[in-house]
C-alpha cells in the first residue's frame, strides 16, 4: 500500500491526549475513535504525507521492533482507517 496516495480526511478531527494517544471524530458519521500511541503516530505521519516505508522506519527508530513487523502494523492500521472511511485520496 502506498500511503502517499492517501491522506487524513478533511471530515476527521483529531485531538491528542495523554502523551501520545488520540481521539478521532468523523464529522460525517459523528463517530468517535480512540487511537493508541502507535495508531496516533501513523495518523500524524499520514498528515505529513509519509509513505508506509517511511512510517515503518520511524517506528523502528522509536520502538524495539523489526522493520517487517513494523510494516505489517502500519498496514493493518491503515486498513482500519480505510475500513472506517477516515482517509481520502490525495
Amino acid at each position: 500500500m502506498n500511503t502517499t496516495a492517501l491522506t487524513p480526511g478533511k471530515h476527521v478531527v483529531v485531538t491528542d491526549f495523554d502523551g501520545g494517544e488520540g481521539i478521532l471524530v468523523d464529522l460525517n458519521t459523528k463517530k468517535y475513535y480512540q487511537l493508541n500511541e502507535t495508531a496516533m503516530a501513523v495518523w500524524k505521519a499520514l498528515e505529513q504525507g509519509k509513505s508506509v516505508g517511511e512510517i515503518a522506519n520511524d517506528m523502528t527508530a522509536n520502538y524495539e521492533v523489526a522493520l517487517d513487523n513494523a510494516t505489517r502494523s502500519v498496514e493493518r492500521i491503515l486498513d482500519n482507517f480505510q475500513t472506517y472511511k477516515l482517509l481520502t485520496a490525495r
Binding site: 485531538t15 491526549f17 495523554d18 481521539i23 468517535y32 475513535y33 480512540q34
Partner: peptide, 14 residues
C-alpha cells in the same frame, strides 16, 4: 468504558 473516558477527558480539556 475506556473509550468514553478518553473522549470525555478530551472534551473536558476542550
Amino acid at each position: 468504558d475506556p473509550v468514553k473516558e478518553s473522549l470525555y477527558s478530551v472534551l473536558l480539556r476542550a
